[in-house]
Write a protein that binds this DNA or RNA. Structure first.
Lengths: 173, 173
DNA sequence: GACTCCATGTAATTTGTTACATGATTGG
DNA sequence: CCAATCATGTAACAAATTACATGGAGTC
């Protein structure tokens, strides 16, 4: 986030919540100590404001920028989904609570789909008004990923709710 | 896993690796202390074998079974994908390393798809030979989820590699 | 005057990772 | 006999979560 410019811990939290917030959470209890560590490693510099707010502004140093790009270039790996171990054991639940849970989750997913579509609409609109929208392609792609993901989950959930024969799922390619 | 029967920490690790291992890892450094904690809370009972192996066999107690079912009945939540924050920032990478990373990931995904298909084949075969295959429906469903997931990711990756216009993704429902 | 927002932090607790350490048994 | 597997654990280190604690500024 500091690649975008100088920020305080508080600003950071707001920025995170309103951008990657859909799939990543940060608490103050993790943010402030993390900034401290980054400052100790001299990856960021600290400037205190002397106005009434008493903000501590953190700026990414060249070494920090380097560390960020190194992290970014690391290998992509399949994300491990802890949610799945729950469903893995769903056979132990009775049919009634199981259907209820699946129903609830389906409801949440539908809500999430609507949310993501709204967000995507807003972002697309904002993007149309800036100078170089192509520089924000991957940020928008992540939204598209989110949508594909929840749509896939919805389809899958609908299928298992009906106890469809899962061997008939056809590969897309 | 202890719902299936009495096991040692070592057995547990093997069982985890060969079942949920595709999407969940457990190390001895987390397993043994965890079993200790479960024993302290009297959710499992401990029986030491007196043979040469010196195994410590853990058995789920009724209270442990209850705790498991309570955990299982908890609300399902959308899994948070930390991998996505990487891709969110991909605009900061140059086109060359970016394409290389996407290519690598695509390769991994294709490997994973083949693996999952093999595993699914094996599991389906095994399932056909047991008495009540319907009691293992959700275990198999998770495999189907895994496959849908990687297939979705592959499609998405292929799209962004070509910088497709992501606004044209059509909802499935 | 009360409530919300801005702003920073610490403390306790919990947990995970990685590496280290030990020793018995089994199969080729 | 040597390597792999079986089997259990600890220690150092790193982080995250939740709750607590504090204080200023703006606004209704």
């Amino acid at each position: 986030m500091l690649m975008e410019g100088t920020m305080s811990g508080y600003d950071l939290k707001k920025t995170i919540d309103s951008s990657v917030g859909i799939f990543y959470k940060a608490s103050f209890g993790s943010l402030y100590p993390a900034l401290k560590r980054l400052a100790e490693k001299e990856l960021v510099s600290l400037n205190e404001t002397d106005d009434s707010k008493n903000k501590k502004l953190y700026t990414l140093l060249p070494s920090g920028r380097e560390a960020f790009l190194t992290w970014l270039s690391g290998p992509l790996q399949a994300a491990r989904n802890e949610q799945l171990i729950r469903i893995f054991f769903f056979d132990y639940l009775d049919e009634e609570p199981r259907q209820r849970l699946l129903e609830e989750y389906l409801f949440k997913l539908e809500h999430e789909i609507r949310t993501l579509e709204v967000v995507k609409g807003i972002v697309t609109g904002e993007l149309a008004e800036i100078e170089h929208p192509e520089n924000y392609y991957y940020r928008v792609s992540v939204l598209a990923y989110g949508l594909s993901h929840v749509q896939m989950e919805k389809q899958w959930l609908t299928d298992i709710k009906e106890r469809k024969n899962l061997n008939h799922v056809e590969p897309q390619n």
